[in-house]
């Protein structure tokens, strides 16, 4: 399979803390994400959904099972898979422009092209006028837009998002959802989006993979792609509400299990 389709095959992962006993975080996860598909990984906290994303990113070694992107097994991080983290992860000592430029510099693009592309992306995420600000001078939503611009700058085929809007207030989050969808319309990508927010998952994703409490397994995969019409319209349909209720019931049991396990 060419392109950016992703195949998780029986992926297990054991977390070994420096002290204490090893914990099985993921247990035989199999999942296929088609090229240019938007898949949300939904599950209670601690279910290993972020771990799955880090394995896909190549930040953690795949010890059991296999992960392939475009038919090639994942081996370390690479610019074909861009990542956006919950806590923005901007270089605090770099300005907005320098942050966006970072990936382009690593790609050894010519200077003129780097500058042009950085400016383009800064405008895409509506941060014109803040090019020379430092991250500490920006709000959470603005920081996350810089992070998205930095990741998009290197044109990854796959976008990994680790609860990217989890730290934002509800209004900002809604606006960011709309912006993300607009960006995806302009430059479609394969997206794996980790979240514990059911509405967010249904609104953004084509399919939602619900994960169990630890050790994480795929409990069920639910189609959430609206049939015709835009996503914004979809949000106001009865079908949307039904999907949210259905998924919430699936997640609820797991969230309770996760709570009991932690108690």
């Amino acid at each position: 399979m060419a392109g950016s389709g992703i195949v998780f095959g029986q992926v297990s992962h054991t977390y070994r803390p420096p002290r204490g006993r090893p914990v099985l975080a993921l247990d035989g996860v199999s999942l296929e994400v088609k090229e240019r598909e938007f898949v949300a990984l939904l599950g209670p906290s601690g279910c290993g959904k972020s771990t799955l994303l880090y394995l896909l990113g190549g930040f953690l070694p795949v010890e059991t099972g296999s992960i392939a992107v475009g038919g090639k097994p994942v081996h370390g991080p690479g610019p074909d898979r861009g990542i956006v983290f919950q806590n923005y992860s901007l270089f605090p000592w770099k300005t907005v422009r320098q942050n966006v430029l970072y990936g382009l510099e690593k790609q050894r693009k010519p200077k003129a092209e780097r500058e042009r592309r950085a400016q383009e992306l800064i405008e895409l995420v509506h941060l014109k006028g803040f090019e020379d600000s430092y991250p500490s001078q920006l709000s959470g939503g603005m920081k996350q837009r810089v992070a998205i611009a930095r990741t998009l700058a290197i044109e990854p085929e796959t976008l990994l998002m680790d609860e990217p809007f989890g730290a934002l207030d509800a209004q900002t989050r809604t606006l960011m959802h709309e912006e993300l969808l607009a960006i995806m319309r302009r430059t479609p990508k394969t997206v794996v989006f980790v979240t514990h927010d059911v509405r967010e998952a249904v609104y953004l994703a084509d399919r939602v993979a619900v994960m169990t409490a630890r050790p994480g397994r795929i409990k069920q995969i639910v189609e959430t792609k609206p049939v015709g019409g835009s996503r914004t319209d979809f949000m106001h349909t009865r079908e949307f509400g039904d999907k949210v209720d259905y998924l919430w019931n699936l997640v609820r049991d797991e969230a309770i299990k996760a709570q009991e396990a932690n108690a």
């Binding site: 880090y54 991080p77 690593k106």
Partner: peptide, 22 residues
């Protein structure tokens, strides 16, 4: 921050570049 290192790696930075630049 681990995520900062990973962000640089995902941008294509080598281990050496991570050391100097992050």
């Amino acid at each position: 921050d681990q995520a900062l290192i990973w962000s640089a790696r995902a941008c294509g930075a080598s281990e050496r570049e991570v050391l100097w630049e992050v």
